[in-house]
């Protein structure tokens, strides 16, 4: 009975305040979309880092079938060449610059590739043979990349030496800057949303002061009086958060999935499914912001 009563109160509150409720939904929608966009950029950065990015800095790719580099004149890397390279890495002259190194075979490379590009159509057309084996090196000082590069580039069996960090760092810093901007915009929009929710609840409390006055007099509990108002704000904010989650999913699905991944097939993009892990966070964030701001407003404007 009490639940039915509270629900009907919420319904009538939402109906009476339709325009304000819609504006709350839109403001939370926009602000949480920005929050989510920042989250998506971070997910994308993680995706692009792949398996090795945080573990090593330099990769020495070994010759495979189609290699055309000068070091690959003898065709694919032979076991002897590979042993030589490993001995060179372990020799004191080189070992002083590196923490450790790992060998990635063609099969392992294929496995990591599949993980990173799981959302991309390219994964089906790649076989382990097409991927080069490599030594992955964790540098003591990443700035000393040149030493490794000079030592190994000319070795037989080496196709190329790549500083992965240098390739991606600039892109990542741009993406980090973009997420920072998104978070700042989100911050301003969230302040906006909080103030708007507070105003909406205040109006709602004012337009129903007759009812709440009577409820107080006949001894309704604080919960029964306040809950409809709080839930009104929370429901509006949660609807906004759901819209924001839907938008992020649509961006991941239509923009990244259908468009960008075709334009840049060699880049790993996040899947639409991954954006859904942001959804619960957005729903909770929206709901709790609305709950807290309406609770604080009610403490000032609704005597119980």
């Amino acid at each position: 009975m009490r639940l039915a009563f509270i629900l009907s109160e919420i319904g009538s509150g939402l109906r009476r305040n339709v325009t304000m409720v819609i504006s709350v939904i839109l403001v939370t929608f926009v602000s949480l979309t920005f929050v989510g966009a920042a989250g998506m950029l971070q997910l994308q950065i993680n995706q692009m880092k792949g398996y090795w990015y945080d573990k090593v800095q330099v990769a020495i790719f070994l010759c495979s079938d189609g290699s055309t580099a000068s070091g690959c004149a003898t065709g694919p890397v032979t076991p002897e060449q590979q042993d030589n390279l490993q001995r060179l890495l372990e020799s004191p002259a080189v070992a002083q610059y590196i923490n450790d190194f790992q060998f990635e075979s063609k099969d392992e490379a294929y496995k990591h590739f599949k993980d990173q590009f799981s959302n991309s159509p390219i994964v089906d057309s790649v076989t382990p043979d097409q991927l080069p084996a490599s030594f992955r090196i964790n540098m003591k000082d990443p700035e000393k990349y040149q030493i490794i590069s000079e030592t190994f580039s000319s070795q037989p069996g080496v196709e190329t030496v790549i500083d992965q960090r240098q390739l991606l760092e600039r892109l990542f810093s741009a993406m980090n800057a973009a997420s920072l901007v998104a978070v700042s915009v989100a911050g301003v929009m969230i302040v906006c949303a909080i103030l708007l929710i507070a105003t909406t609840i205040r109006l709602s409390a004012f337009s129903r002061r007759r009812e709440t006055g009577i409820m107080r007099l006949v001894g309704a509990s604080k919960t029964v009086i306040q809950l409809p108002f709080i839930l009104e704000g929370v429901i509006a904010a949660v609807v906004g958060a759901a819209l924001a989650s839907g938008t992020l999913w649509a961006v991941a699905h239509f923009f990244l999935g259908e468009y960008l991944s075709k334009q840049y097939p060699d880049t790993a993009f996040i899947s639409p499914g991954q954006t859904l892990i942001l959804a619960p966070a957005l729903l909770i964030l929206g709901g709790s912001l609305a709950g807290i701001s309406s609770l604080l407003t009610l403490r000032r404007y609704l005597r119980v």
């Binding site: 009975m1 009490r2 309704a220």
Partner: peptide, 22 residues
């Protein structure tokens, strides 16, 4: 201090609803 949009029965019943009477 009656609720203008509620009829007589509902106005009286309101006092019971809000304290959770069945």
């Amino acid at each position: 201090r009656l609720l203008p949009q509620k009829n007589v029965f509902a106005n009286v019943a309101f006092a019971m609803q809000v304290i959770g009477k069945s």
